[in-house]
Design a protein around this nucleic acid. Structure first.
Lengths: 159, 159
DNA sequence: TATTGTTATACTCTATAACTATA
DNA sequence: TATAGTTATAGAGTATAACAATA
């Protein structure tokens, strides 16, 4: 009937994360994917902070770079952003001089997005950080496993 | 120098997602992980809507079920939630009668979380939906590949 | 009338600061 | 003084509604 022994059966408050049963979450792909994404995003902000790039702007720059003239609507559906939310980002990128909007001559409702030289330089600098950043995030896996993971993700998703 | 032919070199506005170069994003694990997580979360809301479970509450229930008496602070750091944000959810779950808070006798600052019978019933019903839901989300992969993906995610993350 | 882009706005999720009570 | 929990609040991300210009 002793009470103040902080060692014996004191499971409740002293229950540390080490001793918790997490097996259910470990078997839950959705939860593990969330953790993985958090890790990648936190790491991204550290690695690319100096350039002022975010995961969203990095993806936007990359798609415009590889597809000059891409319209905002395609960009939004591709990146899984709602058009109004993308527009807000595009406004900032344009007023900062990283991208340029051209009205399409064929359909004057449509907008064609392009990188300015300043924007092209920024994404080029970002691209140089990409490989070491990915390696760091995936460090616990062998190179073959890293390729397998990326391959499985690509096959899982209809892109 | 022709102009109005909407077929020939009309890459800009007619550029559909089918013809876009997405290879850069496909080689970016962080982006693919984001897409995967979005897919799992959207699917979750569809599948578990009838039970009123969200990814967050599902995880909370599962951890309390497997670790009765777990304190909010451990739960928060485990699920990567800030304590104040978790507290708000716990308040709703308690006032809805799904969980119960006990003050620890050993340390009266500490709180021990438990499921009520009503909460235990809810997570038990949710658990029955879990396997078919995961199978659906991972359908493009073989069972061996599904196991590989989960294994790689677990090895990537320090849980 | 339908589509593209845009603005305005609401809502959810997440982050920070400060307070209470115990230790 | 430090810690666990809580409250209040601010910020970022994401959602819907409505409008202008063009088709």
């Amino acid at each position: 009937m002793s009470s103040k022994t902080p060692k014996a059966g004191a499971k409740s408050a002293e229950q540390q994360e080490k001793t918790l049963d997490l097996s259910a979450l470990q078997r839950t792909p959705g939860f593990m994917l969330r953790l993985a994404q958090l890790k990648f995003f936190e790491g991204f902000y550290e690695e690319f902070a100096a350039l002022g790039l975010t995961p969203a702007t990095y993806a936007i720059f990359a798609v415009i770079r590889d597809n000059p003239g891409v319209p905002p609507s395609s960009l939004a559906s591709l990146l899984r952003l709602r058009l109004p939310n993308l527009i807000k980002i595009l406004n900032e990128l344009e007023s900062s001089g990283f991208i340029k909007r051209n009205r399409s001559k064929a359909d004057r409702r449509a907008v064609e997005l392009m990188l300015t030289p300043k924007g092209a330089k920024l994404i080029a600098e970002g691209a140089r950080l990409t490989e070491p950043y990915n390696r760091k995030m995936l460090a616990p896996l062998s190179e073959a496993e890293q390729r397998t993971l990326l391959d499985l993700l690509n096959r899982m998703l209809p892109l």
